[in-house]
Write a protein that binds this DNA or RNA. Structure first.
Length: 551
RNA sequence: GGAGCCGUAGUUCAGUUCGGUUAGAACGCUGGCCUGUCAAGCCAGAGGUCGCGGGUUCAAGUCCCGUCGGCUCCGCCA
């Protein structure tokens, strides 16, 4: 931006002066003139071009502009629905367009790195076979096949595996992925994945490739050197220590297991949890002894949102514990708990007694809340990059408590070799060759080594209660492909939008996407989605049923 | 499907607790004056379906019910 000067005494006459006076916000103009140094007393050191100005000879209006609902300066303070309606004005902010420029450069760097490793970028279909399990599909009716539907792809998963059968060996794609599920600040219905798959690889090969890619992106775009290798942690350890499968390692506040210490303590709530196969886990809030009752109740409400029945608490004192649940616990156990938790007088010890997963998740939510507050006063930690691989995820999870098992990731994940013998006898203990890439508490992506042997695939399908006929109906094409010499293979998919969000220090995925959707999956700028003409529906042989609230 | 917060000039907000005269401020906009300014200054003016619908009341921006939209979270989602 440069200052232009029009002076009546420079000529051009009253017509030009009048034209200049008519200029308004966001007008598009062309000027001709001479760049000149500003008089010394008019130099503005606050802007880059503050020492010069253009003495205008000619002025033309290329296009006028209505008074905008907000100017780029004001946009940062405007409500988001207004900014989304006028997205083109919002994007004029250097602040926002720079995020899209970063996104472009990260995509370009990704292509350069992967091309250097002999990957082929291959496009897979946008109209694919619907899949009833997993995320809800966006459906597209077929005009040519009335009553049949395409789905928009949730991911290129099956296609990239088939490309391995084709001998592609190294595939990647910056793939659009679409899921008709509810949104979050870090979830949009359409997002982009750095999706890749390789033949003849193990987990470590994928890890090293991605570490190299991340290192190059951070080096070139942020001038940051990442330490390699990224730490690795099992799912079990992540849950036990941090109460999350995507722990934020920028802060501590680790969970502690108090089960063995409180066993036989006489406090019914603790004992029942242990007898039921769960345990008692705790978290120390440094200095938390002075937290108000209200603040403590808010933490309990947070824990309860994640399934805990309550949040037991006790203040840490010189002699042991006091207040809260202390009166139910013998003195010797109190001091043992305090020592095990590493708590000091003035701290608050909060505890959840429940099944492993519930206790960890509930305390993990509390830990996360504490950590976010801690980061506010520790900027150096807040701006650090703590990458992490989480692996050894369970292959199956129980569906509700019904005793039935569903794939935790997807049904093509290879179990770990040492757990294969238990595949059908004890599915709950089977861990997979599964891995998530985590950064600062966000899951950047996940992947796995896939099953390429038919006998293992069939065993997995038996565990999840899928009949051969059903498998044939839904995945017959993939199983058929696997019969014709499928190499061992594996891959990963990274969320490009989330990577950009974290790199740009944004808290919403919307800021990384040129034209994002609102929480209700609508686009306020173009009014999407929208009803269609009856004629179009008739061609598709579709009749609407809008008043039936059931479904 | 559920919970919370929000919705008042073009924009950002105050006013809602406890219903009561003509709904205010700042920025922006329009006009005028001044001016080598860079967040210009001074004067004047225009601008309102208080998201929408219903109810209570003599009286509703304010209370009640419903509904629409935005944001955050749980469920859901890799």
């Amino acid at each position: 931006m440069t200052q232009a000067v029009l002076r009546p005494e420079d000529g051009g006459g009253p017509a030009r002066t009048e034209l200049a006076r008519s200029l308004g916000s966001e007008f598009v103009i062309a000027i001709e003139g001479t760049v000149a140094a500003r008089p010394p007393e008019m130099i503005n050191s606050k802007i880059g071009t503050g020492e010069v100005e253009v003495i205008v000879d000619g002025l033309r209006i290329l296009n006028d502009a209505r008074t905008p609902p907000f100017t780029p300066d004001e946009a940062a303070h405007c409500s988001e629905d207004l900014r989304l309606e006028y997205r083109y004005l919002d994007l004029r902010r250097p602040d926002l367009i720079s995020v899209l420029a970063l996104r472009h450069r990260v995509a370009a760097t990704t292509r350069r790195v992967l091309e250097g490793q002999s990957f082929l970028e291959i496009e897979t279909p946008m109209l694919v076979r619907p899949t009833p399990e997993g995320a809800r599909d966006y459906l597209v009716p077929s005009r040519v096949h009335p009553g049949s539907f395409y789905a928009l792809p949730q991911s290129p998963q099956l296609y990239k595996q088939i490309l391995m059968v084709s001998g592609v060996d190294r595939y990647y794609q910056l793939a659009r992925c679409l899921r008709d599920e509810d949104l979050r600040a870090d979830r949009q219905p359409e997002h982009t994945q750095i999706d890749l798959e390789m033949s003849f690889v193990g987990e470590e090969d994928i890890h090293r490739l991605i570490e190299g890619l991340m290192t190059e992106i951070w080096r070139t775009q942020l001038q940051v050197t990442l330490e390699l290798p990224f730490p690795r942690m099992t799912y079990r350890e992540a849950m036990a220590r941090f109460g999350s499968d995507k722990p934020d390692l920028r802060f501590g506040f680790e969970l502690v297991d108090l089960s063995e210490i409180v066993r036989g303590c006489g406090f019914a709530i603790f004992e029942q949890a242990i007898e039921a196969g769960g345990g008692v886990r705790g978290l120390v809030i440094p200095g938390g002894g002075s937290l108000s009752r209200k603040a403590q109740d808010e933490l309990e409400a947070l824990a309860q949102r994640y399934g805990a029945r309550g949040l037991a608490r006790a203040k840490v004192a010189d002699g042991g514990l006091e207040g809260g649940v202390a009166k139910f616990l013998p003195g010797g156990i109190q001091t043992a708990m305090r020592d095990r938790a590493g708590a000091r007088p003035g701290d608050l010890l909060v505890m959840v007694a429940d099944r492993f997963g519930v206790a960890c998740r509930a305390l993990g939510a509390v830990r996360s809340r504490l950590g976010q507050q801690w980061l506010d006063t520790n900027p150096e930690a807040a701006t650090s990059w703590r990458f992490l691989w989480v692996n050894e995820f369970p292959v199956f999870e129980e569906d509700g408590g019904s005793g039935r098992f569903v794939p935790a990731h997807h049904m093509f994940t290879m179990p770990m070799d040492e757990d294969l013998p238990h595949l059908e006898s004890d599915p709950a203990r089977v861990r997979g060759k599964l891995y998530d890439l985590v950064l600062n508490g966000f899951e950047l992506g996940s992947g796995s080594i896939r099953i390429h042997r038919r006998d293992i695939q069939e065993a997995v399908m038996r565990v999840i209660g899928m009949s051969a006929a059903e498998a044939e109906e839904r995945f017959g094409f993939l199983l058929k492909a696997f019969q014709y010499g499928a190499p061992p293979h594996g891959g990963i998919a990274l969320g490009l939008d989330r990577i950009i969000m974290l790199m740009a220090g944004r808290s919403s995925l919307r800021d990384t996407i040129a034209f994002p959707k609102t929480t209700s999956a609508a686009s306020l700028m173009d009014g999407c989605p929208a009803p269609v003409e009856a004629q179009e529906l008739a061609e598709l042989r579709i009749r609407l049923d809008l008043h039936n609230k059931g479904a």
